[in-house]
Design a protein around this nucleic acid. Sequence first.
DNA 1: GCGACAG
DNA 2: ATCTTGTCGC
Length: 237
Amino acid sequence: MRPAPPPVDASDPVTVQRYKAWQRTMHDQVRAYGDPDVATVAGFDVQYGGQGEPAVAAAVVLSYPDSEIVDETVVSDRPGTPYRPGLLALRELPLLLALAETLETLPDVVFCDGHGVGHPRGFGLACHLGLALDLPVVGIAKNPPYRDGIPEPGPGRGDTADIAPAADWDECPAGPVIGRSVRTRDSTKPVYVSAGHKISLDKSVELVLGTATRFRQPEPIRAADRLARAERKKLSE
DNA sequence: GCGACAG
DNA sequence: ATCTTGTCGC
């Protein structure tokens, strides 16, 4: 049995510190390896409205590698805590777990926005989600996990560069390679991939490049993004 | 007070 | 993430 997350009040530094210590501990439960057979990949995404408005989470399950729609679902609820760097799961995990429960059939792999083990304490949103669902999850972020020293991959689609932990991440139990910058389109800003759970970094990158052919973002993520946007628009009118 | 590090 | 027009480029 794994330790439950400590209750955390985002405005109370003491409980936040406890939660961070728990994250560091939980990294040991993560399996940043594995080579699952993949017939379906799901993209999960959350969209937010203004104050008081509900957040909308969408999941789209696509066949792999041909990207046919297998299933899609939406759920909406009040947002979790406000966003804070390093604590994204506090904001999005509740909604994403509710979302997963609405799927008819679980996918072989889940893609979510944000980081996996490429996180200051080695336990980003994709890790939280992977352990909670006991599914392979890949973290795909549009921005790097820290500012300075992120290696730039070559300019062509498919070029990659390994990311090491930040020099000041004393508490990070992951590494020496925590993720990879991946160029999914020629001369376009890379995406930042890290393993969340039950899948290796190599396999994660293979799947990202296999699903992001024409656009920067992988197709499952784009599909979920579109669906959540559409649903949010529908709710706001 | 400034700067900042997923979304 | 969201607020938002025009604008650069394929």
